[in-house]
Design a protein around this nucleic acid. Structure first.
Lengths: 137, 137
DNA sequence: TCCTACAATGGACTAAGTCTAAGTCAAGAA
DNA sequence: TTCTTGACTTAGACTTAGTCCATTGTAGGA
């Protein structure tokens, strides 16, 4: 059914009912859930699933590069299943809603060498903040 | 002694020994401390200071716009006293060291209207990630 | 079908931060 | 200077998010 499940199986990821349910929750909705929300949705289908299992599974999906971890608000981390194409995030400062966005150009390019202090810069996370249409009321 | 203390007093901020010590800790070192580190350094000078007081004071300094709160790593928030001039952050993925950097150009400009979904975008946080010279070994 | 290494469980534990009720004190008024 | 009062501080309980670990379960190969 889902590309994600296919890819995981192809990579030899051991498939269990718990892992399947977590992967399906992520693949099913293109929103940015917290670990607790993933657990709640997973538990609707598999009531005995443990919180620790959800954390373990999310951690693995992140290591495999299939899911991106966001720590936008200093509160609970959120998990973004849209890892296959590069994007940035637009966050509402009122309600916390997150949208995926694609800025034009390469955000890395604007950091001059003189500002790199010898770091090997490999990644840039850009978070645009503002009020969403409903909150701007 | 410090600009920060001056400004706070000028704004009618009620000065107590606890608040003074917290402000001095922040003004004194241009590093990015966690709340706990601020508490530890404050307690060297004022042993009875409560953790809650440090949290309250940091929260107020953030509201006043004198300090910027960073939630880079999903762990403890860090506090950046360098709020008077705009800058972004370069974070080491190994050791967590943070450096202030100034990208060229306006990071807001690269987000086309078509990607704003009706949001009133007011702020952009850019985090460059990579390995610092010591960790790149 | 049987093994066994890998995965799941649940409950205790930790870290970071918030809340609350009671006590304290800075700063303006007299 | 002393008084007054509302704002500030305190200690500790509480909450939230996440980790750890010893035990139990099971996917998938032989």
């Amino acid at each position: 059914m889902s590309d994600l499940l296919e890819r995981l199986r192809a990579r030899g990821w051991r498939m269990t009912s718990q892992r399947r349910v977590v992967a399906e929750v992520l693949a099913g909705e293109h929103v940015h859930l917290t670990a607790d929300e993933v657990h709640a949705r997973a538990a609707e289908r598999l009531p005995e699933i443990a919180r620790a299992t959800v954390y373990n599974t999310l951690g693995e999906l992140v290591s495999l590069g299939e899911v991106v971890e966001l720590s936008t608000d200093g509160r609970a981390k959120r998990y973004d299943p849209n890892a296959h194409r590069p994007h940035q995030h637009l966050v509402c400062t009122e309600c916390g809603t997150i949208r995926d966005v694609r800025p034009s150009g390469d955000p890395l390019a604007v950091l001059p060498d003189s500002e790199r202090y010898g770091f090997t810069v490999s990644k840039v996370d850009v978070t645009y903040r503002g009020r969403c249409p409903s909150c701007a009321g």
